[in-house]
Write a protein that binds this DNA or RNA. Structure first.
Lengths: 322, 322
DNA sequence: GAAACCCATAGATAATAATCTATATAACAT
DNA sequence: ATGTTATATAGATTATTATCTATGGGTTTC
């Protein structure tokens, strides 16, 4: 038996003939002519190499082989129905995988969105990669994920970005620090003190460095640590003071005081970034739509800058579909 | 998703691409060119309406949907393999149904062949119809069965017949009957006695009647009964004597004596009859081949007239195949 | 940065399939 | 017997598919 030439159309016609017990009736129902159906049947029988029907008083009765083929077709059709169902869920974003890569600092924010999303869409698998800026950019270059979260997104040649949250940098000092008595500070207050910094290349550091530079300030004493957590704990322990993203500081932490920096000038934001030269999982698009409509439910309203509508609508057009 | 245009060939190509992770490799293996495979994939993706692959370092990785389609294809292929297996068994006569219609008298003979056949081929379903000659001929006319067993086959315009066994008619008398003392009898011995007969139209009766007629004999006293069993028991009970097929009398029956009829003249035979204008189940052909080679194992050698070889070889050529 | 390899696409062609109309043929109903 | 209905087949046309060669644009490797 040679399956290669068989098309589903052929099987469909065959199944109708079995059900109606008649070539002519099948032809009428499928809006074909009788010879067409006859010929299709013939082709099928040739492919199978066996008689599939015999005549009995005006009716076509399937032979053993015909009946078995019919059962086979039914099952095959069911398989494809299942697949179609699955497809449908994937397309609706109800199922599938959404891979997000984000820089360290974002891990304080994204879970607040991802948690509720996961609860609402339990069949969507979320896969999160967290790294420093350099690592995440490398993933972005290789297009390893569906979604990226950056402040300071990289070159957007093949990508779209959508801002969704302010990333305010604040001064963090121990609660018993001299500066803790002030309501706000200026950059020059900071520059002369011992300060704990993230590594070069991190968005926080980049922003801080350029703020200092624009004012001609130079740090007197600094210490580099690769993690926001380590810095926060360090500040608590009196190792120094730090400039961090506001989102990194848990509001319950009474050992720290958070101060806005008057003259910081630069404001940074968090962005969702999506490559346009690559297929994006429907689940990821679905997550972005979810984010767009639910930002204010799950994140602090003060910082929200919801510009995801533009991103989402752009995605519906621009993204590659092969 | 529209399945109609999909052919199995397309799915086959798709599966190879999933397995090799490469269009080019698939092309090489299937002896196609790379663009051909590329195009097939494209068509499939269009039919499905979803991306099935994405690129990752020179390789094609199936998307969620692609993977699911792959699984679907696997299962479908398996379905068809099962079907092919089934087909194979049907064609080999190892599976399927074999419908045999036979006249009453034949039921004393056929089971001796059908029993061993069923044991050897347990997946073949045997369906037996038994009736008087008239009924079986009606079935034959309507081509309701694969195989018919007659002595005196009907018109063979659209049929083939193969003789396999003598059907000797004998005289049956109670063991205490006057004739029981003789070693054989003549027709004239019989005609003057009370005699139990099968109905007109039965082969036994037809044969007996014509034997009498050719000698100008007339029965003095007769009684018609529709079953061999009834006649046999009647003879036992002293209702009269009877002419029956030798095969009908169980050899263990000590209440009866069986006598050959010297001058009977006509010899009748059992025939397998097969219509040639109709598809015949492979199982039926298989049964006939079995009969041809095993007749002498299961039937009394004395009466065997095995002419089935001719029937079988004729069947392999003449029978309709659509 | 050149070579090697991958995939996508365009353009062309030959093969196949789908479909029709017309007609023959067989079975059935009356 | 005759008209009706059903299937099969022939012949023709159109649409689709399968397939090729040639080419262009990416990546990876060296």
């Amino acid at each position: 038996m040679d399956l290669r030439q068989l098309s589903f159309r052929l099987l469909e016609v065959f199944m109708h003939v079995v059900q109606f017990g008649s070539v002519s009736e099948t032809a009428r129902r499928l809006h074909l002519t009788q010879p067409t159906v006859s010929l299709q049947l013939k082709r099928l029988q040739e492919a199978v190499g066996e008689a599939l029907f015999f005549h009995q008083q005006q009716r076509l009765i399937p032979t053993e082989a015909g009946l078995e083929l019919f059962r086979t077709c039914q099952q095959v059709l069911e398989q494809f129905n299942d697949f179609e169902q699955y497809l449908h869920e994937i397309k609706g974003g109800e199922r599938g995988m959404c891979r997000i890569a984000m820089v360290n600092t974002a891990q304080y924010i994204l879970p607040k969105l991802m948690g509720p999303f996961s609860v609402a869409h339990p069949h969507v698998e979320m896969k999160v990669e967290i790294g420093n800026r350099e690592q995440v950019i490398a993933r972005f270059e290789r297009a390893e994920d569906d979604l990226y979260v950056f402040s300071h997104p990289p070159s957007l040649e093949h990508a779209l970005a959508g801002r969704f949250l302010q990333n305010p940098l604040v001064l963090v000092v121990p609660c018993d620090h001299v500066l803790a008595k002030q309501n706000s500070v200026s950059l020059s207050d900071i520059a002369e003190r011992r300060i704990l910094l993230r590594e070069r290349g991190s968005a926080t550091r980049m922003l801080f460095d350029s703020a200092l530079q624009s004012r001609g300030l130079v740090l007197s004493d600094s210490m580099q640590m690769a993690s926001n957590e380590a810095i926060r704990v360090g500040v608590s322990a009196g190792m120094g003071i730090a400039v961090l993203s506001r989102h990194v500081i848990p509001s319950e932490d009474r050992t720290l005081k958070v101060l806005p920096i008057d003259d910081f000038g630069l404001v940074s934001h968090w962005y969702f970034v999506v490559r346009t030269d690559r297929h994006i999982a429907h689940a990821a698009k679905h997550f972005l739509r979810f984010a767009e409509t639910n930002l204010d439910k799950y994140l602090e309203k003060t910082w929200i800058r919801n510009e995801l509508a533009a991103l989402n609508s752009a995605l519906n057009n621009k993204v590659k579909h092969n």
